[in-house]
């Protein structure tokens, strides 16, 4: 991968949480069904904290592999 391709892949991963919260999460604004005991919006927002970490770690691995963090 070239340097700009690496940047793009990493940026894409960083953009996913923004899409998940800003664009998608409002569609979960209903009272039911309860997921793991929580209303859908709360479940979605909580699980995405974990997924955000995974996305950023992915970006980190890509940038690290491309030698962008020296």
């Amino acid at each position: 991968m070239g340097k700009s391709q690496i940047n793009k892949s990493a940026l894409f991963l960083g953009l996913l949480p923004w899409i998940a919260y800003v664009v998608i999460s409002p569609f979960f604004n209903t009272a039911k069904p309860l997921i793991l005991g929580m209303p859908p919006l709360m479940f979605w927002n909580t699980i995405w904290l974990v997924i955000t970490s995974i996305c950023l770690y992915g970006a980190y691995r890509i940038e690290l592999g491309g030698g962008l963090l020296e």
Binding site: P17, W18, Y21, S25, N45, L49
Partner: peptide, 14 residues
Amino acid sequence: AIGYGALAYAFGYF
């Protein structure tokens, strides 16, 4: 408050 932290960190990462 749950959401914006994740957004801020994703922005801050870059």
